[in-house]
Design a protein around this nucleic acid. Structure first.
Lengths: 194, 194
DNA sequence: AAACAATGTATGCGGTGACAACAATGTCGT
DNA sequence: ACGACATTGTTGTCACCGCATACATTGTTT
């Protein structure tokens, strides 16, 4: 017999929500539907997620954590050369972004008032990763020195923008690899030490 | 006496929707609320917009048209020098993007199945504008020659990504001007003819 | 064992999107 | 001038959802 308490309802709901998000998008995501899938009553999720938005916020927060994981995994599987590391990070970012388009949109869309701090904090992890990568490039002399803040933001923005254009069907997915290459090359040329 | 027919309900609804979008976001946009504001019954909008999504699609399409207008206006108010034209276009894009954050998100979010073609077609106008701008830069020798397709996409993506980061509160709005300058400078350095 | 928190259940309210049937208005060919 | 026809707006209805409230059950702490 299934116990009265679910045990780890929150985790189950988050996993089911992430799957539903990938399949049907954020608009179609329903707390009641998730409750039905988990085999609990439609009011059970209320303890973990007071309303729909808090579930979406939790998904966004977890999304940044997973993005950070995948970026780090891609970097540890790559050699020490700066150019290839940058390329690996960019490719990993866009793989994540195009496979979980709806999640990505959720991560970068405000609509957040209450949990905004937590999401921004979660975003700091992958952002800091790119920041460190740029610092490495500057240290090795591949990039011109200077405040890596603006440069890192521009790099991050370029990757995010490419993902948006692809996910929005404004550019054909077949062009993705070529565009990433162009972006990385152009970034390195534009930041190269004179 | 108010006439039975509203007269130009579609235009009225679109205008009210654009205002509501700016004030309360896309999620809060309600067909019934718009109908109430326009003084018509709750099902009247159905003739013009069969469902909620078609209204949002029409908003996105109109958004691209307005973006194109504002970009062209910014360019005609700028001298012939390539660098300043590029800077003006970037600034105009980000002004539009940050003032109408919710509209921008709508413009680049798929969720489109039926009206996707019209929206992509509407997006071609501002995109072609940047395309022409790059072609001008290549002709003048400021940029290295080559297929402006990838380069234009990367430029567009960078601007769009910066807007996403600002609108998502992931970077402080005060940094906007500096970031735009960094992005434009870096773009020109990265594309400069060797 | 008693007190308390955490979790799940049952019921109802208000709002929304979608739909069907009907009515008023404008258009156009004859 | 007139009547068929499409366009536009109205009324009424239905199902679904998110949310709030009140209550029951289980687990934990003291």
């Amino acid at each position: 017999m299934s116990p009265y308490h679910h045990g780890n309802l929150r985790t189950t709901l988050l996993a089911a929500a992430e799957r539903s998000l990938r399949q049907h998008g954020a608009d179609q995501l329903s707390l009641r539907e998730l409750a039905r899938e988990a085999g609990v009553s439609h009011a059970a999720p209320r303890r973990h997620f007071p309303d729909r938005q808090s579930l979406l916020d939790a998904l966004a927060e977890a999304g940044f954590a997973r993005l950070d994981q995948e970026l780090r995994a891609a970097l540890t599987a790559t050699g020490p050369e700066f150019g290839s590391r940058l390329h690996a990070a960019a490719a990993a970012y866009l793989r994540f972004a195009t496979e979980d388009a709806a999640l990505l949109e959720l991560m970068f869309t405000r609509k957040h008032r209450k949990e905004a701090d937590r999401i921004v904090a979660a975003a700091a992890a992958p952002f800091g990763l790119l920041h460190d990568l740029i610092a490495q490039g500057q240290k090795e002399g591949a990039l011109q020195p200077g405040d890596p803040q603006h440069v890192g933001i521009v790099l991050f923005a370029t990757l995010q923008g490419i993902a948006t254009l692809i996910n929005g069907s404004l550019v054909a997915p077949e062009l993705l690899d070529g565009i990433v290459e162009t972006a990385v090359d152009q970034f390195m040329r534009g930041s190269r030490r004179p």
